[in-house]
């Protein structure tokens, strides 16, 4: 599997570290309550299809990237820097 890095271009999957669903970018407030924190930390949509997840280009440019991927086919549909995805408010 090859993954597109917005900075480096298409790279070998081994350069990246996977870090789970992109929901990790939507940290709730400290007073949000246990349900919100449970959803943030544990509960997942876990789709068999298109998902958005976080990858760290550890052995490349060290960027955090939101990949849009299909979990059933391993097709990669898009990639954006996590910092930009977060500013755009479209992480989920």
């Amino acid at each position: 599997m090859r993954l597109p890095c917005p900075i480096c271009g298409e790279r070998d999957r081994r350069e990246f570290t996977y870090s789970g669903a992109a929901v990790a970018l939507e940290r709730p407030g400290a007073e949000a309550g246990s349900e919100a924190w449970d959803d943030y930390l544990h509960n997942r949509d876990n789709p068999a299809g298109v998902t958005r997840d976080l990858w760290y280009h550890e052995q490349g440019c060290a960027a955090w990237i939101v990949m849009t991927r299909n979990t059933a086919t391993h097709e990669v549909l898009g990639a954006a820097l996590a910092s930009e995805a977060r500013r755009a408010g479209s992480t989920s």
């Binding site: 789970g20 669903a21 449970d38 959803d39 544990h42 509960n43 997942r44 949509d45 876990n46 068999a48 979990t71």
Partner: peptide, 8 residues
């Protein structure tokens, strides 16, 4: 209607 603490 459940979201599970599961990632496949």
């Amino acid at each position: 209607g459940m979201r599970l603490p599961i990632e496949s």
